[in-house]
């Protein structure tokens, strides 16, 4: 432990959003949201429907530009609204409604996920230079490795749309992992899953955490979030109303109000 305390603290934060606001016409989707994600943790983001979870997610991954505020990632400001550069900086995501490249095989999907880490250009591709060949072979090997990691390598040559729902989710995670992310952002990965599939997903996320990856998890399945996450933030009407370890968040009065509504007489309950 020769590291000065200061650098450890500095290093511990992977992502910090400060004062992020986003408005769509008359709807304030996000209002002054600030939060920090630490390295190596599974960070949950929950909230009732329409609370702004996915909006925040889209700001984070560059699909939306925030009206105000900024996001610092790994010591640098993220360029707002430029998804491919954000992917390059090390944030990979999955989608709430699975968005795979349907006509491609599972393997090709993962290989596309690695695009940002590859360098072959037009000339290299046409001439198939030694460098391009090496890169292509390495990409394919890595894609197989990732499919094995999420447990679907036997389906590598299947068309993506022919995979079962749970396997499609896994494939999307493998595709996201292909860009060697520092932060993996999962948008409601358990949505539509049965109990077995959810349990499998939980094991997979725990494995990812075990391997040192930081995970941001948006989820409706409160049981999954509370059991899995190191820390949880709660959004309601575009505002962050709580951020803490699951046990504290669970008992937070504003969180209970947001989810269950206000009790007219607390003693009567």
């Amino acid at each position: 432990m020769s590291d000065p305390v200061g650098t450890i603290v500095q290093d511990a934060v992977l992502l910090s959003a400060s004062g992020v606001s986003k408005r769509f016409g008359g709807v304030q989707a996000l209002r002054d949201v600030s939060l920090t994600i630490r390295r190596g943790e599974v960070y949950g983001l929950i909230g009732p429907n329409g609370a702004g979870k996915t909006s925040f997610f889209n700001v984070l991954t560059g699909l939306y530009s925030p009206d105000e505020g900024r996001v610092t990632f790994d010591g640098h400001d993220l360029p707002p609204g430029v998804p491919h550069r954000i992917a390059g900086a090390g944030i990979a995501r999955t989608f709430q409604n699975i968005r795979l490249f349907g006509a491609m095989s599972a393997l090709e999907n993962v290989m596309v996920g690695r695009h940002i880490r590859l360098r072959t250009g037009v000339i290299g591709a046409i001439l198939r230079t030694p460098a391009a060949r090496v890169e292509e072979a390495a990409t394919e090997a890595r894609a197989h490795e990732l499919l094995r990691y999420v447990g679907i390598d036997q389906l590598a040559n299947q068309q993506a749309t022919h995979l079962s729902y749970g396997d499609q989710r896994r494939l999307e995670i493998a595709r996201a992992l292909a860009s060697d992310p520092k932060l993996l952002a999962l948008d409601e990965p358990a949505a539509g899953m049965n109990a077995t599939e959810t349990a499998g997903l939980r094991t997979l996320i725990e494995k990812l955490r075990g391997d040192g990856l930081t995970v941001l998890l948006i989820e409706h399945d409160v049981k999954l979030v509370m059991g899995l996450c190191d820390r949880v933030a709660v959004l309601d009407y575009g505002e962050k109303i709580a951020e803490d370890v699951p046990d504290v968040v669970r008992r937070h009065p504003r969180v209970i109000t947001a989810y269950l509504g206000r009790q007219s007489d607390p003693e009567a309950a």
Binding site: G62, A92, T120
Partner: peptide, 24 residues
Amino acid sequence: SRLGRAWVAIREDELAARACGINT
């Protein structure tokens, strides 16, 4: 090649292609 895959990815789902780091 990497480019051919990127083209098909854009054809299949442009938003996902962007999230995958493809400079569409």
